[in-house]
Write a protein that binds this DNA or RNA. Structure first.
Length: 776
DNA sequence: GGAGGCCTCGGAAGG
DNA sequence: CGAGGCCTCC
């Protein structure tokens, strides 16, 4: 492309934001206002203006965003752009911490623990301290420690902080500070950092080493931060420190799209940015290029309900477009069916491609109904989210060996594979080793590698096996150092026994696990080959160590997808941030689901849910369709649902409500009081059974009709009244749809059995609800 | 060490 | 309901 006329592609405000390169700048970028374009052109403009890319730091929200932006910039300014420091906070500062590690007492080959590693370590510590795991749940303790680190509160400061300590006492967990202290110590001994440490230790580095602060202030003369509304305190301080010398700081964000406060993001960072830099220049990108007027205006009408926001007015001169349709379904399954049908019709009428559609939901659990319905209509789809490649067991197992080859002190990696594949080192021996390490304040590896010195009560056979393990790991370490990444990795996979172990497993899961291992090795091979063509320092960059550096920071979206990509996208709204689709369906718009039940107690939480809805709506280019169900399965029980308040917050002129008015429908169907619908065996009986001393088993359910493959059978003590409900419901179905048929109910239930046929899954479930049925 | 029974618990999710 | 953890039993 022609690289010189990029400024011509920008509107007036965008161009000003690009050209204003000196001093503090805040760009408030409304949804669909060309934010990415401004950011990339701004950087390109800096480089063209003679700024060395080495002096530019650009921080993004995801690795994917960084990669795409870097490619774009390189296409404008040439290969020089590759020298940019661009990446997520975590990847950039991990890189710096590896360079400066010795300043804070870490080796540069430190391991990065992912959340799973951290929780597993916390679990061990909680046990070692003799605390009750049911009270000190590892996930909860992890969140608590994470929140503290994000507020730059060390374990010492934590124990001295009266507010935090009294919070912990109040929640009956007064000893979290001890867990925190021990956790930090164990990470240090293992030469490991968790995700939050990457930011926390960067802060320590910059705070305690003025030379370091100065060095990086000088280096990063131009700093850009994307998605600034989602930064936390720790990130805020890093940016503030680094920018303090030159104040060439540019933050880009949209307060209306701040949706990550639950993990520490602080919307105040953007709301108060002006206070930090009084001579700040602010640019507001308010023209939306993505969506129809209807969608932009509807989204505005929703967000207007929020109190706390920066003043801006997003507008568009795109076409008016279709009204936002609201669909109403009987159950979650019928909702899926209706959505799938709409996708099907759109494909026909608009000649749209599957990849033009997105189905967005509040919780991952909602994907199932959508998935089933799409499959029935043969519509290709892809579900985003769920278990990532790098978090699969077999992948983490092999990576644990790689980790040990690079840093044998890595405690979590040792615990993971010291006895996998099985080599006769049992739980008892491992516990003795951990205890010895703890008593002597050394790492587990130090004990393993010098077993004889610690005089453990371990029999000589096991001691020999532990010794063999140590020899193997040291051998792997030498391989990692001397051989290129792929060669070393492949040897380790074989010599460790992992490859063989999985190869011998011929179950479908085993085969798939073996394939995953192969895929990881392929990635390693690609990495080796790719690095070999790079001009700079060919040796160093080809090692297993360099491959492993950021592996903990990768996620599935970073993996190339070689599959056919012409598919309907199914994902949570959080995952959809930054994406856009011509046709968007937002499903499950029910009070207590979206907004989530847990967000109803505070104004702040509710406002964040509303921003989430705003994000969802503004993903749409051509049409947005909302849907809700009047009843939905939750943990096996059918519960009643009310339409979400967000539907009524939409300006009426932009929406088209369902054809069936609610009142008429309820009359036809004769809805009862909500409580009687759900079958509550679980709550009441389990509660009773759990009373101390009670031996009562869950009693056989009463009033229960069972439905299996359309065969209906009744419990012996079945209440005849419910049978009348069933008959009445079937009658209504028949009248209304003409298709619902009772195949055999003569004599009303001969032998307590009947066969029924339902016109659709949704109607079947509505009927079940009528008769208080339970699917078996 | 693996299979199977029992209990518990259930938010969204980047790095 | 169903996933995941834990315990028990072989």
């Amino acid at each position: 492309m022609s690289s010189s006329d990029y400024l011509a592609e920008l509107n007036e405000v965008q161009r000003q934001a690009v050209e204003c390169t000196q001093g503090p700048v805040m760009i408030i970028a409304g949804a669909g206002s060309g934010k990415t374009r401004v950011l990339t052109y701004r950087i390109a403009h800096l480089i063209r203006g003679g700024i060395d890319p080495f002096n530019i730091l650009s921080l993004t929200f995801t690795n994917k965003a960084a990669r795409e932006m870097k490619d774009r910039i390189t296409s404008i300014v040439g290969n020089n752009g590759k020298n940019l420091w661009m990446g997520t906070f975590h990847s950039v500062f991990a890189k710096i911490l590896r360079i400066e590690a010795q300043k804070i007492g870490f080796p540069s080959n430190f391991t990065i623990y992912d959340a799973e590693d951290s929780k597993s370590l916390l679990k061990d510590i909680i046990r070692e301290l003799g605390l009750d795991e049911k009270i000190y749940k590892p996930a909860l303790v992890y969140n608590r420690i994470s929140a503290a680190k994000n507020m730059l509160i060390s374990s010492q400061a934590y124990s001295l902080n009266e507010r935090i300590m009294s919070e912990d006492k109040l929640s009956a967990k007064p000893r979290i500070s001890e867990v925190y202290a021990k956790y930090s110590n164990r990470c240090f001994k293992a030469a490991a950092m968790d995700f939050d440490d990457l930011l926390f230790k960067t802060n320590v580095l910059l705070r305690d080493h003025p030379d370091m602060l100065q060095k990086y202030q000088e280096k990063f003369r131009y700093i850009l931060v994307d998605e600034y509304q989602d930064t936390n305190f720790s990130q805020y301080v890093i940016v503030k420190q680094l920018a303090a010398r030159f104040e060439n700081i540019c933050v880009v964000g949209d307060d209306a799209q701040s949706i990550y406060s639950f993990r520490g993001a602080n919307i105040q960072n953007i709301l108060n940015f002006e206070k930090d830099y009084p001579d700040l220049k602010t640019f507001k990108l308010e023209q939306n290029y993505r969506s129809t007027q209807t969608i932009v205006n509807a989204a505005n009408s929703v967000i207007a309900n929020n109190k706390e926001q920066l003043n801006k007015k997003v507008w568009t001169d795109n076409v008016t477009g279709e009204k936002i349709r609201v669909m109403r379904a009987l159950t979650d399954n019928e909702e899926g069916y209706q959505v799938a049908r709409s996708v099907f019709d759109r494909r026909m009428n608009d000649q749209a491609r599957p990849s033009d559609f997105a189905i967005l939901y509040r919780t991952n659990a909602q994907s199932r109904a959508m998935e089933e319905a799409l499959r029935k209509l043969n519509i290709p789809y892809k579900i985003y989210g769920g278990l990532s490649f790098y978090h699969r067991k077999e992948i983490k197992d092999l990576l644990a060996y790689f980790r040990l080859a690079i840093n044998p002190h890595d405690e979590e990696a040792i615990k993971r594979i010291i006895n996998y594949p099985v080599r006769g080192i049992g739980q008892t021996s491992i516990e003795k080793i951990i205890l010895a390490a703890s008593d002597n304040d050394v790492s587990i590896w130090t004990v393993i590698d010098n077993l004889a010195d610690f005089k453990l009560d371990i029999n000589s056979g096991t001691a020999g096996k532990i010794n063999d393990f140590a020899v193997m790991i040291k051998n792997f370490g030498r391989m990692a150092e001397s051989k290129p990444a792929y060669e070393a990795g492949n040897s380790i996979a074989n010599a460790s026994g992992i490859a063989r172990d999985l190869y011998n497993d011929k179950t479908p899961e085993g085969v798939s696990r073996h394939e995953n291992i192969q895929e990881l090795l392929n990635a390693l091979k690609e990495f080796s080959d790719e690095q070999a063509t790079e001009p700079r320092e060919p040796r160093e960059s080809q090692t297993l160590e360099s491959f492993m550096q950021d592996i903990a920071l990768l996620t599935d979206t970073d993996k190339d997808d070689k599959d056919d990509n012409n598919r309907v996208s199914l994902m949570t709204i959080h995952a959809a941030k930054g994406l856009e689709f011509p046709y968007v369906f937002i499903v499950g718009l029910e009070e207590n689901l979206f907004p989530s039940q847990m967000a109803l107690s505070s104004r702040e939480d509710l406002e964040e849910e509303r921003r989430l809805f705003y994000v969802a709506l503004t993903r749409a280019e051509k049409t947005a369709t909302l849907s809700y169900a009047v009843s939905r399965y939750k943990w096996g029980n059918l519960i009643n649902c009310e339409p979400s308040r967000f539907i009524s917050e939409l300006d009426e002129q932009h929406i088209e409500m369902p054809v069936l008015p609610v009142s008429q429908d309820e009359e036809t169907w004769g809805v009862r009081s909500p409580k009687s619908f759900s079958y509550k065996r679980n709550q009441t009986d389990t509660a009773k059974k759990n009373l101390p001393g009670s031996t009562e088993k869950t009693p056989a359910p009463k009033n229960l009709l069972r439905l299996k493959n359309n065969n209906l059978s009744a419990a012996p003590n079945y209440n005849p009244e419910d049978l009348r409900d069933l008959a009445a419901g079937m009658q209504v179905l028949h009248e209304r749809f003409g298709t619902g048929t009772v195949v055999s109910m003569e004599g009303i239930f001969p032998n307590n059995k009947a066969t029924v046929q339902f016109p659709s899954v949704g109607q079947k479930q509505l009927l079940l609800r009528f008769a208080r049925l339970k699917i078996v």
